[in-house]
Amino acid sequence: MPRVTVTVDGITYQEEVEPRLLLVHLLRERLGKTGTPVGCDTSNCGACTVMLDGKSVKSCSVLAVQADGSDVVTIEGLGANGSMHPMQRAFHEEHALQCGYCTPGMVMAAIDLLRDTPEPSEEAIRQGLEGNLCRCTGYCNIVRAVRRGAQEMGQAVKSS
């Protein structure tokens, strides 16, 4: 079986994996990273979105072997020193989650969106999140949260 080395939320793992093992199952079943859920089998819902080498990917549509040598950040690795990432805080402040199942992927997609567009318009936010489905919120508060998260992240950059 292929042997892969992946760093997940700052910890490096070496695992022997079947070629068909999906990255999301490596995370969930082997590494105990159950913060990243699975919502579909066609890469439509985005619930499993993680950062792979700094870019958002749907971890149900990446093989573990393809992630060999890569750095993965999941929702569990976002915060620092026990405090939440500004985007996580913004989701809380704006009531941008209800059941919370889409939330890890949505937060990841939102952070990814801001890499290119630090001050996104409502339109840009909606387009940027097109690959992540939420069934609870109707998205209004998610849009507000991303705007708030963007402001806070912008300020964090300015003040640092």
Binding site: S43, G46, T49, L52, K55, S56, V57, K58, S61, V62, A109, D112, L113, G128, E130, G131, N132
Partner: peptide
């Protein structure tokens, strides 16, 4: 094409 995460891969 698809969405940002899919476009990354």
């Amino acid at each position: 094409v698809a969405d940002p995460a899919v476009r990354h891969r």
